[in-house]
Amino acid sequence: MTLLALAGSLLAGFFGAMTGLGGGVIIVPMLTLAFGVNIRYAVGASLVSVIATSSGAAAAYVREGYTNIRVAMFLEIATTFGALFGAFVAARIPTSAISIIFGIVLIYSAFLSRHAPRKTGAEKPGFVAAKLRMDSDYPSSEGRTSYHVGNVPAGFGIMFAAGGLSGLLGIGSGAVKVLAMDRAMRLPFKVSTTTSNFMIGVTAAASAGAYLHMGYIDPGLAMPVMLGVLLGSWVGAKTLVRTKSGRLRTVFSIVIAVMALEMIYNGITGGVK
């Protein structure tokens, strides 16, 4: 079991980094569907691996100067409260419901990863963004390019939902975070992805504390998962630079969709533990 989980997590981390989906969305279906692990232990182990990969990647990103720390900090109020709320709900609903919600979010993440988001910045700062002095700039080929931050209240609301899903399902919910920042607040693409990644670790830390007290984090399971995902995603991030990932993403999206349907099916028929 330990070696199987280690090997599976290595692969999950590797493909998660290659495709930009993150390891978390693959770990939970893998543990529950392939290894028969109870979904409560699975989300606990997955969440721990999310913190590891996000913090490792964030260390590289902060130096590059894309991350908007002000936007991140303000929205983390929404994600951390959302995460605690999500963990609170997770302890009180049946595993079948968690499985079905997981399947739906999985399909959505795979779908979103196939459609590159718009890159346009907001024309002028939103009311709240101006009050909170959120406009910033990022490095580009023409020196530092400045940008405005759009609809902060909508972004804040979506972020609470993103935190809730993270605490409920043990994932980073990067896809929902990017949605809030791309579509609602209209941050430039590179800014929203790095800021989202920066926030994932903090959000996950909020629900991980709650998971620890709820007894969801088993050392025997979390150990191979964390080490496997960390190593796998590190190798994956190195490989990403050298390969074209177009076809890989297509194959991966199909695999994800199949896993998602199976999680929904298992949830409905009561096959999930």
């Binding site: 913190i51 996000s54 913090s55 964030a58 670790g201 903090v202 996950a204 830390a205 991980a208």
Partner: peptide, 12 residues
Amino acid sequence: LVVLIATPIARV
């Protein structure tokens, strides 16, 4: 794992 959870907290 507690050290890991504490890392983003130290960051904040």
